[in-house]
Every structure is written in C-alpha cells, then in structure tokens.
Design a protein around this nucleic acid. Structure first.
Lengths: 257, 257
DNA sequence: CGCGCGCTTGATTTGCGTCAATATGCGTGG
DNA sequence: CCACGCATATTGACGCAAATCAAGCGCGCG
C-alpha cells in the first residue's frame, strides 16, 4: 500500500504500464549497491516503497567511538549499517561493562515499538549508516507484512547469537573465549573462510583489547596473554590489531562446538 | 469490576443478540481462563481464529526433567506454556552446560520459520502446555499481522533478557549473580513484589542448585555458599528450595542496577 | 534398612584478576 | 627530524574469588 501523496506518480504508472521499467530503473541510486537491499530489511520492500524510504533517508558517517543512541542520533531515527562494526553495551553503575552484541552490515539498528532498553550503541570502528525517521519505517511496517517478518527474523538471529555468547561467556575458559571471538570476526570478515583446511586469512580486529575483554568477560591482560599464547602455539600470528589465522582447524577446535 | 462491565454490556447487546452470543460464548472452554489470551500470543486472535486454534490444540502435562524438543514433542508442534518453568539450554561436547533462558506462562514455545537452533528445551518443573501443530499457527500468522507482531514482541523481550543475563554472567560476582537470580524468580512468582520496602514474600525455587549454577555460570558449591551467606546476612531465609526474601531493598541493591 | 540424590560445608588448588613496569606505536609541535 | 605525551599492548609478580576435591548430612524410596 502506497501513501496518497504520490498522486503524480500513480498517474505515471498508469501511463507507463510496463512494470518492468519501474522495477529496473526505479531503484534509488542510494540503494543500488546496498547490501540491505539483499540480505537486510529493505529486501522486503517493493521498488516503490524503496523509493519512499530512500527519499526519507540520509547517509551518515560516524567516527570510531561515536555513540549513536540518545546522543548524536536521537531515538526517533532508525538505520541500516552500510559498513563498519557497531557494539551494543550494558554497564553497571560502578563502571563494569559488558558488550552484549556486535552488529555488522547490513543489520538494522534500532528497536521497533519501544524505546531502546537501556543499552548503549556505539561505533566500534568508523561506521556508515543509512538512517531514516521512525515514522517512515513504522508506516512501511503497517503496509508490508514482509518487513515485519524480516525484523522478526533478525530478532531471532540476534537472539540465537546472544544465547551462543551466553554459553561462551558463562562456561568457556579464557583460551576458548578468545578463540571463539577470533572465529566470529574471521567468519564475518571473510565468510568463505569456513572450509576445513582452508588457507585462512589475515584481517584487522575491529575491536580494541578492552572491547574484546568487555565482550568476553575478561580483562585486557588476559586477552593479551591468550593472544600471545595462540601466537606462540602457531594457531595465529598477531601483531597489534593485525591477525592472521594460520590454523583454522585447531582454532575452531579450541573454540569448542 | 469485570463483572460489572459485563453486566452493562449484556444489556446493550440485547439489540444484537446473535452476534454477541457468538462473541461471549464463542471463546473455547480451553481458553477462557488462559493467560495466553491476555498477555500471550492468543491475544492477537479474533474469537473465530481462537476457535480454530483451540480445535487444533491439545493440553499436555510434562513432568520435571522432560525434554520437549526432538523428543516427546516433535518439532512440528508449537505450544503456549500454561504453567511451570521451562529452561533453554546449550551444552558443550564435554558436558559443560549453560542455561540460556527461562520461560514462564504464558510464553510461546518454539521457533517460527526455522528449526530450533541446537538449543535444548526442558521442563524445569512440572509444566502444562497448550500445544498445536506448526501448520495451524503458520496459517494463522499469514492471516493475522497482529500475531506476527506478538511474536516479534516476545522475541525482542527475550533478546533483552538474554542481554541482561549476558551482563550478569560476564561481569558480576557470584554474590551479585545469585542475588540477581533470586530477584528474577521473586518477581516472576509475585510481580507485585517490586515495591521499595515491600513486605517481601516466600516461594519455592523452580530450579535445583545445579540448574542455578548452569544459569549463572557457577558451580553448585558456589551457589550453595552464596545462599548461606545471604541467609547469614539476613537478606533472605533459605531452607532447601524454600526461600523467603527478608530484605528486598538490600537484595536488589546487591544485584546491581 | 541402606542406597541414591540433592544440598551443605570445609580444605586445597588454580585460573584469572589486580597491580605494576615496560614497550609500541602515533600524532603534535618544537 | 627528533622529542614528547598519550593511548593501547605486552609482560611479570602476586593475590584472591571461585573451582575442585572431599566429607558428611537429611530425606525420600525401593
């Protein structure tokens, strides 16, 4: 269902009955190369709706460390991640902190139907965002059951991930935790890395040791020690943030099932 | 209050007796006193649909310890919890276990649009269930946007909870963990318990020490020791599974924000 | 009764945190 | 260019909270 204010557009459709034209040429420039159109929530939208959303959207670039909740980005804006890594944090009054989730492109950011529940949202790396007003998305949701389904899917996926990390944080040793984390990042940077005796690959960690500690429930020192141990044992090669996975098999093995 | 409102309506309805009859008497017996009709997913259904669902539903009672995934309850059945506590678990090949969630009435059990993701589902206490075939629920979802929204809401709530427990498991001390857990149970058994200097209340823990340990990432011994400490310090009174909260304020304080 | 199971309690060990010192960039300004 | 300061990492020595090991208790049940 399309909003009424597009009357002239409606007329256009009638005079140009070739629907295919709209499908091919109707995709906003902003969106043509956007991941969110395929794997993200925008995949649920018709070209027309995509145009509507795109018109209300703005692209932002945030530097590392920028908070995107209650601060720069008021709560009335939602967004898709175009690139970069976003961390979701919770903290105790005395300063202890836990990272409760990491989001990558093309994840949807922002919680539908409620205020963001006292969790902090922060750019872990430079991040670029495609953001749009809450009202627009809300309206599209009413009109498009598929959109709500996508949101449900993402929520369920995040739920699975959160539960997986609960296991890691609650029951694994420091070594296993760090291995699991490396696997998460490696897989996210290069999804093809999964093969058995894969040649592995190198990448830069998107998080500082402090962040990694906050994610795994460890201190920076312990994280650092585990890195050097993994290096010494030949599973990886570390130099600062640069990591190369040398033995994917043993790493995955260490991380546990 | 409820009674009064009903009486008033009944008088009004006399002008349209047939339809109202359907509305009042149309609620399946199975459902009349069911929590799921109010706070659960069934609240999104029209009476007609409720009848359809109820007709396909069966009530089950499971004893403590019963597995409800891939076992007694095949994956093609979903269910609402009518009473009891259900635990969601994950485990490592070597036997280490983590409880990644607890569900109470009237939560919906079962994951829409996918196989249950390698997580175990088990009755922590005797549990009664209202279960129905996947097909029926799937069909109702297509027809009722509100239903999908309810599912999204529950998923988002569970996500919040999972993240809250990630913080607890990752960053809190044993004492804080146990206090947080007691709060969770206390609040769930008696939602009115929340007041500041509330008189507090007594209840039976729905979980064994082993389960509590698996939930908090602790051993039974540590859980036990923390219980006796909280008892000695006068925050609670423990005797086996029976717990009485004596000082809600201090307990909540200990649990952290 | 005696056996098993859930729970408590104590003694001992240990993995990880804490504290502290040192290194390694990296930007900034002299 | 080097010198300096600051943030991030590494490394080591030490301490402690929680795990592990080990009895022993209460209680329901065959």
């Amino acid at each position: 269902m399309v909003v009424g204010r597009d009357r002239q557009r409606r007329n256009k459709w009638k005079t140009r009955p070739v629907r295919q034209d709209i499908h091919t040429s109707g995709i906003p420039v902003l969106c043509v190369s956007c991941e969110a159109r395929h794997r993200g929530i925008c995949g649920a939208l018709e070209p027309i709706q995509l145009v509507e959303l795109a018109r209300a959207s703005t692209k932002h670039v945030l530097e590392e460390g920028a908070e995107l909740i209650g601060d720069a980005e008021p709560i009335d804006n939602y967004a898709n991640i175009l690139s970069g890594v976003v961390k979701l944090t919770k903290s105790l009054p005395d300063g202890r902190q836990q990272i409760v989730g990491l989001q990558f492109a093309p994840d949807f950011l922002g919680r539908p139907f409620s205020e963001e529940s006292a969790i902090g949202v922060e750019a872990a790396t430079p991040v670029s965002l495609c953001s749009f007003p809450r009202r627009t998305i809300q309206r599209l949701i009413e009109a498009t059951p598929g959109l709500e389904r996508r949101l449900l899917m993402q929520a369920l996926r995040e739920l699975d991930e959160a539960r997986g990390w609960m296991m890691t944080v609650g029951r694994k040793t420091a070594a296993e935790k760090v291995a699991s984390f490396l696997l998460l990042i490696a897989r996210n940077i290069d999804p093809t890395l999964d093969g058995e005796g894969a040649p592995a690959g190198a990448f830069d960690l998107p998080l500082t040791r402090a962040d990694i500690g906050d994610f795994l429930g460890l201190t920076i020192e312990t994280v650092s020690r585990q890195f050097t141990r993994l290096d010494r044992d030949g599973l990886i090669s570390v130099k600062g943030r640069r990591v190369e996975v040398l033995d994917m098999g043993r790493l995955a093995d260490l991380a546990g099932a």
